[in-house]
Design a protein around this nucleic acid. Structure first.
Lengths: 252, 252
DNA sequence: TACGTCTAGTTCTCTAGAGAACTGGTTGAC
DNA sequence: GTCAACCAGTTCTCTAGAGAACTAGACGTA
C-alpha cells in the first residue's frame, strides 16, 4: 500500500497535507507548468487512492496558497506565480554603476546548518517550545564589496532539503528557490529597520571594525495564508545603504 | 453583466454561505461576545438542520475571516476584533513605551513659508523649470522627546490655503488635513531610508551635536492617479528609531 | 456560415457518517 | 495531598457517495 496511506502514528502530517506537498513538488519539479491543466480531482483521488474530499482539501490548500486556480466546469490550473518584485528588491545602493538601484547584488552563501531555534525566531514562528531550525548565512556584494550580512532562519521540516542543495543552483535570490524546490510561495513580509552595532560575525563579513554602527533589518516573511516561513536578520554597511519601499496602489 | 450569468440565478447563496451570514449576525448583534464559546459544531448543525460538514464549511469561512477561532478539544470562540491600521499612517516609529508602534506622536509645527523649490523636490514633482512651493517644518515628539525633524514640501497652487490655517486645528497627522481642507487624498507613498548626518537645522531641533549620525527618510507621496503631492525629508534620532513596514497581502 | 442544442467532463454543494486527536475535569488509588 | 487513569465533550481527519452548476466543444439545423 502506498506510503501516503499510512496512519500518522509517527507524528507525521495529516494525509491531505502530505498530498498537498506531493502536488506542490510536482509543480516545483516542472511536471506541471504554469498555465497547464492538472488532472481532475477525480483522477487524482483515484491515482493517490484517497477519498475525493481529501484530495479536495489538498487542492483547496494550494489554491489558498496561490499555486493553483480552479475553474468550475473547466479544470484546475497551475497559476503564474505572481511574485512581487518589491518583496526582494528593495535594497538599493548608491552606486555609479546602478543609478536606479535595480541591480541584484551578488550573493555568497557562507554556511547552512541546523541549529537550536533562537527565542526571537520561535516567537516569530509561533512555536512555544524549543525546536530546531535551519540557519543560513550569506553575504551580498555590490561591485564586489560586501554590503549586507544576512542570517536567515527557516522552519525545519519544510526546508530540510535545502541542506542537500548545491549553492551553485541557488541564484542570487532566495524566494524563487523556495518556490522551485519546495513549492512555497512568499507573498508578504514585514520589515523592521533600526540602527545597531555590528556583531562579531557581521563585522567580520562586512569588513568593519568591531562594534561599528550598522543598519539592522529584521524580516518576517509569510506565505499567502499568513504562515510565517522565514525570519531574517540583516546587517548592512551604513554609508551607502538605502532601503526603498512603496506602499499603496498607484499607476505611475 | 448579464444577470443570468450569475451563480444561483434566484439570488440565493449556497447554504453554507447563508449559514455563515446567520452566524456572523449572531456575533454582530451581541448574542455571542468576543471571548465567548459558541455552541459546538454538532449542536449548531442540528439546530439549523444541516449536515455537519456543511456547518463546518460555514465555521471555516468565519475562521478565515478572523471572526472565529477554533481549538481542538475545547470549542469555538469569538475572536477579539483585529487591529486595523490607519490608512494614512504608512510608517511606524516606535520605542519601548510603544511596542506596537501604534502611538501617534505629538506634533509641533515650527514654520510654514513659501520658498524656491529645491532641485530634488522639482525632480520629484516633475517640474522642469524653477517654481516656488510651500515648505513646512515640524518636529515630532514621543514622550516629550524630539524624535523626528521633518521638512515637508507641497505644491503651491494646491496648498496655498495651508498658510492661513491655524496649526491648532491641524492635529498630529497631515494627510487627514489634506483631505479635509483641500480634498486631496494620499493613497500611495514611496519611502527611501538611509543613514546620514544631521544638518544644522535638524541637529538643533533634535537636540543633537552637529554632524551626528541620523536616520534619513525621503518620502514621495501621491494621489490615486499617481500625481506627486508631497516631498518630505525626515531626520530621526537613531538610537530609538524603528521603521516598520508590511508588504503584500496576508490574513494574519 | 450562423446559431441553437446536446453531451461529456469538470468543479461545487451537500449529505451521512466513523474514528482519531485533543482538552479539561472528575475519579480513584496511593 | 498527589498523581495517574479515566471520561465526556470538542474539533479534526477521512471516507463514500449523489446531484447541481457550469464549461467547452461537437453536432445538427436553418
Amino acid at each position: 500500500m502506498c506510503a501516503l496511506r499510512m496512519p500518522q502514528a509517527d507524528g507525521r502530517l495529516p494525509l491531505y497535507a502530505r498530498l498537498r506537498d506531493q502536488l506542490a513538488s510536482r509543480i516545483a519539479n516542472g511536471e506541471w507548468s504554469p498555465g497547464d491543466t492538472i488532472p481532475s480531482e477525480n483522477r487524482l483521488a483515484e491515482e493517490y487512492g484517497v477519498a475525493l474530499a481529501t484530495m479536495r482539501m489538498a487542492l483547496k490548500q494550494l489554491v489558498d496558497e496561490g499555486l493553483l486556480e480552479r475553474r468550475r466546469g473547466t479544470g484546475t490550473f497551475v497559476k503564474q506565480p505572481a511574485f512581487r518584485a518589491d518583496l526582494f528588491r528593495f535594497f538599493h545602493v548608491h552606486d555609479a554603476d546602478d543609478p536606479d538601484g535595480s541591480m541584484i547584488p551578488e550573493s555568497r552563501i557562507l554556511s547552512r546548518e541546523e541549529v537550536e531555534t533562537p527565542a526571537e525566531v520561535r516567537l516569530a514562528f509561533g512555536e512555544p517550545e524549543a525546536t530546531r531550525c535551519l540557519k543560513l548565512e550569506r553575504v551580498r556584494l555590490w561591485s564586489g564589496e560586501p554590503m549586507l550580512f544576512e542570517e536567515v532562519y527557516l522552519r525545519l521540516p519544510d526546508f530540510k532539503g535545502l541542506l542537500a542543495l548545491d549553492p551553485k543552483d541557488m541564484g542570487p535570490l532566495l524566494y524563487p528557490v523556495f518556490l522551485q524546490e519546495f513549492g512555497i510561495l512568499i507573498t508578504s513580509a514585514t520589515d523592521e529597520l533600526s540602527f545597531g552595532t555590528a556583531t562579531k560575525a557581521s563585522a567580520r563579513h562586512l569588513e568593519l571594525p568591531a562594534n561599528s554602527p550598522v543598519a539592522v533589518i529584521e524580516r518576517i516573511a509569510r506565505n499567502p495564508v499568513g504562515r510565517v516561513i522565514e525570519y531574517r536578520r540583516v546587517h548592512g554597511r551604513p554609508e551607502r545603504f538605502r532601503y526603498r519601499v512603496t506602499l499603496g496602489e498607484h499607476n505611475a
